[in-house]
């Protein structure tokens, strides 16, 4: 079984430190939710782990099966089994979903190995059907002119095709109406199992009604300040983030 260990991670954008000592271990098969108010470093955490060049990891470690991934390029991290579902997926004019995913699948194959195009399309279409994405979308440019819901479904489609060991899902619920949220959640739940570890980053408890986490962590000022099971999300929903703030202040007093 694989595991992703994030150890005392510090991340800065420019001179400003955003993530301040974040630690968490995720095993394949587990679903962890990270909740927290805006500006607390949730998105920074996920992008830094994925290798975004704008984010500097100033100290700490990220280990995949005991091996540090921090010296790897973003593409090598992805091929090692990481997947980042973007909060705001980029629109890529002129690059069709079919070509893009084929390139991503091919990048994971050994040199000289040929892609079985028939099998590839069969698999692509079955995943699209599951996510209720029109098959015509394969020839459309990635996210180009897509609605918010279509973009998020396209992220999940990519995840389904690439079968990562660990998925970092950054606010996958944002911008979705309830119907779109259900479709996305169904897609994610269909992938749940012993081969996938997930980190769900969310601002709202709503997503967790549909994708029920094994663990819930509250992030505050760049690190985890409270952990629990799914009931913590409900408690947070009921009491609001101020509750955490007050508790923290009391603990630090």
């Amino acid at each position: 079984m694989s595991q992703l260990e994030i150890k005392n991670l510090h991340v800065a954008i420019g001179e400003k430190e955003i993530v301040k000592g974040f630690s968490l271990t995720i095993r394949q098969g587990e679903v962890h939710a990270i909740m927290g108010p805006n500006g607390t470093g949730k998105s920074t955490l996920s992008k830094a782990i994925a290798g975004h060049p704008d984010y500097t990891i100033t100290s700490g470690e990220v280990l995949l099966d005991g091996q540090s991934i921090l010296s790897l390029e973003p593409d090598a991290r992805a091929r090692a089994g990481l997947f980042l579902a973007f909060q705001y997926p980029s629109e890529v004019p002129g690059v069709s979903i079919a070509n893009f995913l084929r390139a991503a699948v091919q990048a994971r194959m050994a040199e000289g190995e040929e892609l079985d195009a028939t099998a590839y399309y069969k698999r692509l279409y079955s995943k699209m059907d599951l996510l209720k994405i029109d098959r015509k979308f394969t020839s459309r440019a990635i996210n180009d002119g897509f609605s918010g819901g279509e973009k998020k479904r396209c992220e999940i489609l990519q995840m389904a095709m690439l079968e990562p060991k660990f998925a970092l899902m950054d606010e996958t619920d944002s911008g979705l109406d309830i119907d779109a949220l259900r479709i996305v959640a169904d897609g994610v739940n269909a992938m749940r199992g012993t081969n996938l570890g997930m980190l769900l980053i969310t601002h709202y408890q709503r997503l967790l009604d549909y994708i029920v986490p094994d663990y819930v962590h509250v992030m505050w000022d760049g690190r985890i300040v409270k952990s629990g099971d799914k009931s913590l999300a409900l408690e947070l929903e009921a009491k609001g983030y101020d509750w955490v703030k007050t508790e923290l202040a009391a603990a630090n007093a």
Binding site: D75, L84, F86, P89, A107
Partner: peptide, 10 residues
């Protein structure tokens, strides 16, 4: 970055 994050080499 978006493409690289899917495993596609630079």
């Amino acid at each position: 970055f978006y493409l690289q994050a899917r495993g596609i080499r630079k």
